[in-house]
Amino acid sequence: MSGPAGEQRIDHDLVWVVEDSAEDAEAIARALRRTHPGLALDFTDRGTGFVERLLGAARRPGLVLLDLKLPGPSGPDVLRSIRSRPELDGVAVVAFTSSTGPDEVDTTYAAGADSYIYKPVNFELFRAVLKGAVDYWQRKAKSGDEGPGAQPPS
Rank of each mutant, 00 (worst) to 15 (best):
G149A: 11
P61G: 03
L70F: 01
G144I: 10
L65M: 09
A58R: 10
L125I: 15
L125D: 15
T35R: 15
E104R: 14
H12W: 05
R85H: 09
A113G: 13
L32F: 06
P148M: 14
T100W: 12
F126A: 09
P37M: 07
G90S: 12
S74K: 06
D20Q: 01
A111E: 07
K69Y: 10
E26M: 14
I10W: 03
G47R: 02
A40R: 15
G112C: 04
I82H: 03
G6C: 10
R83A: 04
L130P: 06
V129N: 14
P61Q: 05
R33N: 14
V121H: 11
K119T: 10
D13F: 04
R59N: 06
D13C: 01
D11W: 02
R30Q: 03
W137Y: 13
W16S: 00
V91N: 00
L65I: 09
K142H: 00
P71E: 08
W137R: 05
E52C: 01
A150F: 06
G3L: 15
K131A: 14
R80Q: 12
T107R: 15
D114K: 08
D89W: 07
S84E: 14
R33Q: 13
N122P: 00
G144L: 12
A58D: 08
F126K: 07
Y118D: 07
L65A: 05
S84L: 10
V91H: 05
Y136I: 01
D103P: 05
D45S: 15
R59H: 10
V15F: 06
L41F: 05
V15E: 04
V91M: 02
S98Y: 06
E52Q: 11
A27G: 02
I10Y: 04
G144E: 08
V134K: 07
A31G: 03
A22K: 11
S74I: 06
R139S: 00
R80T: 11
P61W: 03
S99T: 13
V17N: 01
S74F: 05
A5E: 15
L70T: 01
A110P: 03
A111K: 06
E23N: 05
A22M: 08
L66K: 09
V17A: 06
A141R: 04
V17H: 02
L130Q: 08
D145A: 07
P73V: 11
E19Y: 06
A128N: 10
A95R: 02
V134E: 02
E52H: 10
G149M: 04
D106G: 03
A57Q: 01
S21I: 12
P37G: 09
I117W: 14
Q138V: 08
A141I: 05
P71F: 10
P37D: 09
E7H: 12
V17I: 13
W137V: 06
S98Q: 12
M1L: 08
G47V: 05
G38P: 07
A57N: 00
P102F: 13
E7Y: 03
S98F: 12
H12M: 01
Q138E: 03
V93E: 08
V17Y: 02
P120M: 09
F96G: 02
S99H: 10
L63Y: 03
F43G: 02
G132P: 09
G3S: 08
R83M: 09
A22C: 00
S2I: 13
A133Y: 07
Q151D: 10
P71G: 11
F43Y: 11
G149E: 08
S84N: 13
Q138K: 14
D103C: 00
G101S: 12
Y116L: 11
S2M: 09
S81R: 13
